[in-house]
Nucleic acid binder design. Sequence first.
DNA 1: TTGTTCATGGTACGACCGTATCATCAACGT
DNA 2: ACGTTGATGATACGGTCGTACCATGAACAA
Lengths: 230, 230
Amino acid sequence: MPKRVDHEERRAQIAEALIQVAGRRGLHAVGMRDVAAEAGVSLRLVQYYFETKEKLLFYGLQHLTDRFTARVGARLAAVGPDPGPRATVEALLLASLPTDAESRTFHLLYSSYAILSVTDEALAAQPFVDNPDAAENALTGLLEHAQKTGLADPGADARTEAISLLAMAATMGTSILVGQRSPESAIAVLHHHLDRIFRTAGTTGRGAGEAPDVAGGARAAVTPDVDVVP
Amino acid sequence: MPKRVDHEERRAQIAEALIQVAGRRGLHAVGMRDVAAEAGVSLRLVQYYFETKEKLLFYGLQHLTDRFTARVGARLAAVGPDPGPRATVEALLLASLPTDAESRTFHLLYSSYAILSVTDEALAAQPFVDNPDAAENALTGLLEHAQKTGLADPGADARTEAISLLAMAATMGTSILVGQRSPESAIAVLHHHLDRIFRTAGTTGRGAGEAPDVAGGARAAVTPDVDVVP
DNA sequence: TTGTTCATGGTACGACCGTATCATCAACGT
DNA sequence: ACGTTGATGATACGGTCGTACCATGAACAA
C-alpha cells in the first residue's frame, strides 16, 4: 500500500475552495480549474476525488449546509445557557440573515442551488437539504412551547407564524444581499413581528417606544461586510 | 433604402424566445444559439439586433419585468370595478405567486437575475428594476388608505406590514417553485395575515372558521402547472 | 529489495460558446 | 434602371470547459 490520505478531509478542503470561489464569482461561473487553483491543488486532484463536476457540486451543497448548520448551532449556544424561547427564536432568525462574509456566501450559494434545482433535475432529485422543514418544525415547536408557558400570545397559529417568520427572513436576506435593504431594517421588521407574537395579555414583549427604522434610511452599501450581529 | 423592419418588435420577439428557453432550461444554460433556434431565426440575427450577449440579457430582464407589470395590472383590473383595498392587496400578492406557467417563468428568471446581479457587477449597475420599492410603496399606500377609511387595524405599521407581506409572498413563491410548498398553503398564510391587518375594532375581516390548510397536506407536485388563481 | 497500488501531475481531446468575417439578397431613392 | 444600404445567411476563429489519457512518485507487503 502506498501513501494513504484522508479522502474525506481532502474532499472537504476542495469543497471549501468551491464555496469560496463560487461565493466570489458566482456558482454559475465556477469551473473545475478555478476550484483546483483556489484549493492549491492540480486539476487532476479535483477529478480524482470528485470524478465529475456534478458530484463536486452535490458535495459542495452538502458541505455548505453542514457548515451553516454548525454555525447556527454555535449562535444558539452563544445566546447563553437556558435562554428563553424568544431569544432562541431571535437567534435562529438573525443567524440566517447575510450580515457577514460567511453568511453572505451561504445565502448566495444556497439561493443559487435552489434556483438551479428548478431546472436541473439531477439536483432536484438529490435531497436538497436533509429536511427542508427542519427549521420550520423547530420554530413551530419553540412558539408552541412559548404559548404553553404563557410567554407568547396563545391565540396565534404557531405553524403559520413560524412559516411567516422564516419566509420574511429569507426574502429580506436576499434583499440585503443585493443591496436593496439594510440589515438593520430587516432586523427591525423581524422584531416587529416577534413583539406581536411574544405578547401575553398584560405585558408587551419589548419596549413600545423604539421606533424601528423600518424604511432603512440610506440603503445599504453594495457590500456591507460589517458584522451586525457579532 | 432596403427592406425596413421594426427593430423593436424583432427585439421583443427574440427577447421572448430568450425568456421561454431560459424558463425551460435555466438562465445559466441559455446560449445565443438556443435563443436563435427558439425564435426561429439565425444566430446572426440575434447578434444583429443585440450586439452582445450581455445586452441581450439586459433587454431580456427589461422585457420580463415589463410583461409582468402588464400582467399584474390586468389582474388588478380583473378584480372588478372599484375594488376594496383588501381585494386590491390580495390580488397584488397572489399575482406574484408562481401558480401558472407564465408566473413560474417570471419568478424563476427574476430570481436568477437577482442572484446573478450579486456577482455580476455589470448587471448590478443596471437599474435592476425601474423602482425596486414600487410594490412596497404601492402596498403601503393601500394599507394606509384602508386604515384611514376604517377598514384596517389603525394600530398596525403600514410600511412594516407591506414589507412583510411582500417578503412572505416572495419566499413562498420560491418554495412553490422548488416544489417544497403548495400554492394553497402559501395563499392560506397570506390570508392569515390579511385577516390580521384588515380587522377593525368590532368586525373580523374574514370568517373565523376557515381552518386554513397551512401545513399544506401533501406537498405540491414538482411541476404544478394548474392555475390556482385563474 | 522489489513489486503492487494509491496518489498526483501534465497534457491532450472533443465539444461548445460568444464573437467576428465574408457574402448575398432585397428594397427604395434617384 | 441601378446603385446604395439595410437585413439576413453561412461559416470560421479563438478560447474555455469538462473529461480522458498517460506517466511518475511514494509507501507498504512480501
